[in-house]
Amino acid sequence: MAKAARAAQAWRTYRDVSKPGSPGLGARLRALPRMVGAVMRGEYSGMGKGKLAMMGLGVLYIISPVDIVPDFLVLIGVADDFGVFLWLMGSLLGEGGRYVDWEREKARPLHS
Score class of each variant (00 low, 15 high):
Leu60Gly: 11
Ala31Asn: 00
Val36Asp: 08
Ala53Pro: 12
Ser64Arg: 08
Tyr14Met: 14
Gly26Asn: 02
Met1Phe: 04
Ala27Glu: 06
Leu25Lys: 11
Pro23Asn: 05
Gly21Ala: 09
Ile63Thr: 15
Ala2Tyr: 06
Met54Glu: 09
Tyr61Asn: 11
Ile62Met: 12
Gly56Ser: 03
Arg30His: 04
Asp80Leu: 07
Asp101Ser: 12
Asp67Lys: 15
Leu93Tyr: 00
Val78His: 13
Gly77Leu: 09
Leu75His: 08
Leu25Asn: 05
His111Thr: 10
Asp67Ser: 14
Gly58Arg: 00
Pro70Ile: 06
Met55Thr: 03
Glu95Ser: 08
Gly24Met: 13
Glu103Cys: 05
Gly37Lys: 09
Ala7Ser: 13
Arg30Lys: 13
Leu60Lys: 06
Ser64Pro: 04
Leu52Trp: 01
Asp81Asn: 12
Glu43Met: 06
Arg6Lys: 12
Gly90Gln: 07
Asp101Phe: 09
Val17Tyr: 03
Leu32Cys: 03
Ala2Asp: 15
Leu25Tyr: 10
Lys49Gly: 01
Arg6Ile: 02
Ala53Tyr: 14
Leu88Ser: 06
Gly58Cys: 05
Met55Leu: 01
Ala31Thr: 02
Thr13Asp: 01
Val59Gln: 03
Met1Asp: 13
Val74Gln: 14
Glu43Tyr: 05
Phe85Val: 11
Met35Ser: 04
Val100Met: 05
Ala31Ser: 05
Ala5Ile: 09
Gly21Ile: 08
Pro65Asp: 11
Ala5Trp: 07
Met89Ile: 09
Asp71Phe: 12
Pro109Cys: 10
Ile76Met: 14
Val59Ala: 13
Arg6Leu: 15
Ala5Asn: 06
Gly58Met: 01
Arg41Met: 04
Pro20Ser: 13
Lys19Pro: 02
Leu32Lys: 07
Lys106Gly: 00
Ile68Met: 14
Pro109Arg: 07
Pro33Asp: 06
Val100Phe: 08
Pro65Leu: 12
Phe72Val: 14
Leu88Trp: 01
Thr13Met: 04
Val74Ile: 15
